[in-house]
Design a binder for these strands. Structure first.
Lengths: 311, 311
DNA sequence: TTGAAAGCGCTAACAT
DNA sequence: ATGTTAGCGCTTTCAA
C-alpha cells in the first residue's frame, strides 16, 4: 500500500525529509532545482502523502461530519449531496452518519466525529434531546452548522450558524392560496410539531386563519409520526404534495400544487457557512441563512363545490 | 478541544501510558483496580481517544470510502444509506464522494481515499475509464467492492467482490409479462448501454423476443443519456416505472407495474462483503452477490387493443 | 535555502 | 500485570 513515504522521496531526490515537505506544501523557500528533483521522485515512486500523519501533525483532518436522521430521504439526500459537492471543492471530505433521530446515536456520532478530529459538523438533530452535546461541541471550538432545525438554546443567546427554510412563509402562501379559492376548512398534515419545520408550518397556517378572522377550529392540524406515514396509502400519499415537493407531485394526475424549496441551496449554504468558519472569518460575515419556500401552482386545487361549506 | 490526551489520563490514574492504552483497548492484562482507576480518570477528564493518532499507529483508519455518481439519486441514496448503517454497526465510518461519473473525479476520489488510508472502498464506476485505477488499488491491497457495475477486466480473471442486481432476469420477467398480455411491439427505455444495468436489461429483453421467435425489430431499445431524461415530461416520467420502482409508481393512477429490487440489500450486501475482507476472511466465504429483481404487478399494463397489432 | 531534531497521540514490542 | 521505549509519517521550529 502506501509503502512509499516522504522519507523515500527524500532519499530518491537526494535531499532531506523536511525539504521534501516544504517542496510539497508551501513550495516556498525551495530552489527550483530541488523542486524539480522532488517532483520527479514523487512521480517515479508514486508517492502519495499520508493524510493521517499530516492531520495528526497539523491538528486538522480535512474532514467534515454530517449528522442526519436518514440520508436516503430524498430531501436529506439532496441537501447532503450538495453539501458534499461544495465541501469537496474546498478540499474537505464529508462523512455522513444516519442517526434515525435516535439521541443516543446522535451522541455516539458526535463523539466519533470529535474523536476523529473533524474540522466541523453539519447537524440536523432529530429532537431537542442533545442540545447539551451541541453546546459542548461548540464550546470546545468545533464549528457546528444547524440544518433546518432549532438551534440549541443558549444562555448567552449568541446566534448559532444555521441554514433555515422559511416553512412558515410557505405555509402562509399555501393557506392563503386555498382560502383565496374559497376554502374555509383546511387540514395541515405535517410532521413532529416539536421540530422547527412543522412548528413553523403550523404557525404560518394558523396565522393566516387568524388574520382573516376565520374560525381557528377549521384550521385542522394532523401530525404524522414519520414521513413514511404519508405513504401508507394512495390517499395520504396524494397529500404529500402540499407538504413538500417531490418528483411525485409533478407527474401525478392531476399534477399536485406543492411547496418547494431548493434543497441544493440548503446544502450549499450550510457548506459555505461552515467554510467561512473554517477560514476563520469572523462574525462580520453572514452567519445564518433563511431560504425561501415557493408555492408551485399546478392542477390539484380547485374551489370548493359549495364555497365556504366544503367538507 | 481534544486537549486531554492519554498521557493526562495516565497521570490522573497514577499508571503508565501504555497501561491506559491496554485498559482502553483489549482490557486484557489489566488488574481490576487499574481498570477502575483508568475508567474514573477517563470520565473525570472527559478523555476521548484521538482516532487519528491511533490510525497512524495501527495503519487502519476505521473508514470506508464510497464512490458513487450521485448520492441524491434515490436508488443510490438507499444503497449508500444501508451500507452506512451496516458499516457503522461494525465500527466503520463511511465517507461518500459524488463523482458525477466523471473519470477524473473518480480518480481524484480514489487517490484521496487512498491517501486517507481508508480500509476499503465501495465503488460504482460511471464508465470503464478507470479500470486501471481499480486494479491498481486492488493490487495495492485495498479491498474494493463493486456496486452493480462490471468488475474491471482482469488478466488473471480472479473474481472481484461485487454486488450485482439481476437486471437481466427482471427485464425477462417484464418482457414475458407484456408479451403474455399479447404485446408484440415493445420499447425498452434505459440508460447507458455500456453500463451493466442497461446492458443486462437489453440482453434479457432481446432474449425473450428471440426465444419466442418474435421479430427482433419489434424489440425497440431507447437509450436515455441520464436518469434525468426520464423526468423531462409527464409522458416519459410515466415510463420510469418499468425501469425501476419508486414511490411514484405505486401512487400513480393507474398504479404502475414496475421492476423492483431491494436497494437496502444491495447496500447491506456490499458492506458485508467488505467486512468479510476486512476481517481477513478468505475466498472460502461468499465473494459476490446477485440480488433478484421482482416484477411488481399493478394496474398499468393491459392487453393491446388489437392483439398483436398495438401501435 | 537547507537540514537536524522534536514531537503530534497513540499502540505494540519488549522488558520487568 | 505494568512500565519503558520505539516508532507510525508527517510538519515545523530552530540552526546552520
Amino acid at each position: 500500500m502506501g509503502v512509499v513515504t516522504i522519507r523515500d522521496v527524500a532519499e530518491a531526490a537526494g535531499v532531506s525529509l523536511s525539504t521534501v515537505s516544504r517542496a510539497l506544501n508551501g513550495g516556498k523557500n525551495v530552489s527550483t532545482r530541488v523542486a524539480r528533483d522532488v517532483a520527479a521522485a514523487v512521480d517515479r515512486l508514486g508517492y502519495q502523502p499520508d493524510f493521517l500523519a499530516r492531520s495528526l501533525r497539523t491538528r486538522t483532518s480535512g474532514m467534515v461530519g454530517c449528522l442526519v436522521s436518514d440520508s436516503s430521504n430524498p430531501l436529506n439526500a439532496s441537501i447532503v449531496q450538495a453539501a458534499e459537492a461544495h465541501l469537496r471543492e474546498a478540499g474537505y471530505l464529508l462523512a455522513v452518519v444516519n442517526t434515525a433521530s435516535d439521541p443516543a446515536r446522535e451522541r455516539a456520532a458526535a463523539a466519533e466525529f470529535r474523536g476523529r478530529r473533524t474540522d466541523g459538523m453539519l447537524v440536523a438533530p432529530g429532537s431537542k434531546a442533545n442540545e447539551k452535546t451541541w453546546r459542548e461541541l461548540a464550546a470546545a471550538g468545533m464549528p457546528v452548522i444547524i440544518l433546518d432545525r432549532d438551534p440549541p438554546e443558549d444562555a448567552t443567546d449568541n446566534h448559532w450558524p444555521a441554514v433555515q427554510v422559511d416553512h412558515r412563509g410557505g405555509a402562509r402562501a399555501a393557506t392563503r392560496y386555498l382560502t383565496g379559492l374559497g376554502h374555509r376548512r383546511i387540514a395541515l398534515l405535517t410532521g413532529d410539531a416539536a421540530m422547527r419545520p412543522s412548528r413553523e408550518r403550523i404557525a404560518g397556517f394558523r396565522e393566516v386563519f387568524a388574520e382573516a378572522g376565520f374560525d381557528p377550529a377549521d384550521a385542522q392540524v394532523r401530525i404524522q409520526a414519520s414521513p413514511m406515514d404519508f405513504a401508507q396509502g394512495d390517499t395520504l400519499a396524494l397529500l404529500r404534495g402540499p407538504v413538500g415537493d417531490t418528483d411525485l407531485a409533478a407527474v401525478h394526475t392531476p399534477a399536485i400544487t406543492a411547496l418547494r424549496w431548493n434543497l441544493e441551496d440548503v446544502g450549499r449554504a450550510a457548506a459555505e457557512l461552515l467554510l467561512q468558519r473554517l477560514r476563520g472569518e469572523g462574525p462580520s460575515t453572514q452567519s445564518s441563512a433563511l431560504l425561501p419556500v415557493d408555492l408551485v401552482l399546478r392542477e390539484s386545487c380547485a374551489p370548493p363545490r359549495r364555497p365556504g361549506r366544503d367538507e
